[in-house]
Simulated scan of single mutants.
Amino acid sequence: MSERETTRLVAWSRELRQVHQRLREALSVTRASLADGTPGEAATRDLLLYCHGFCTALDAHHQGEDRTLFPAIAAAHPQLRPVLRALQQDHSMIAYLLNGLRAAVGRSAPPEELDQHLEGIAAIMENHFRYEERQLLTVLETLELAAPPGEVLGPI
């Protein structure tokens, strides 16, 4: 195996960590926008933009994992299927929470309610990311997967 191939194999674990970090940052920016509390139409537009961007990015990340990454891991490491099922259940829970946030933003819910949505998403998302990293990073260092990172982990 060439050095480039080895680098590419290890890159999946690095890619996952980077995507998780960018999603954490996107959530932080969204929460900061809400905490700023600047009244007016511009603040509402900013919050809509941040929430939409964050929700879209997190959804795309999980869909890419479910569609491409997890089947590849299951094929190479069948013993991890229970872990992958648990992660997919988390994806469903997070999607449900994101839909609740979208609905709250769409009806211009008060900042306290929006923050409750974001706090719930943050707690589940962080727990999910940590579990995923503990369970999969070592596997990702040896996974052979010929697919663009954006397709596998979302366009982050």
Rank of each mutant, 00 (worst) to 15 (best):
T44C: 07
R8E: 15
C55N: 12
A72T: 14
F70H: 10
A72V: 12
A57Q: 03
S92E: 08
A75K: 11
L137I: 10
L136F: 10
H52C: 12
S13E: 15
P148R: 13
V152R: 01
E112D: 09
D36Y: 06
Q18G: 15
Q18K: 13
L143A: 13
D90F: 00
P111T: 13
E132G: 01
G150V: 07
L140I: 01
I73V: 07
S33M: 06
T30E: 11
R17H: 11
A146Q: 13
E126V: 06
R17V: 14
A43H: 05
P149C: 09
A76N: 10
P78V: 05
R45S: 02
R67D: 15
T44I: 12
Q79E: 08
G53A: 12
L87F: 06
E3Q: 09
L136K: 04
R85Y: 10
A109G: 07
E141N: 09
Q88N: 08
P71V: 08
A122I: 06
I73A: 04
P71E: 12
S13N: 13
A35T: 11
S33A: 12
M93G: 00
T68H: 10
P155V: 15
I156H: 10
C51R: 00
R14N: 01
Q135G: 00
E3F: 08
Y131G: 01
E151Y: 02
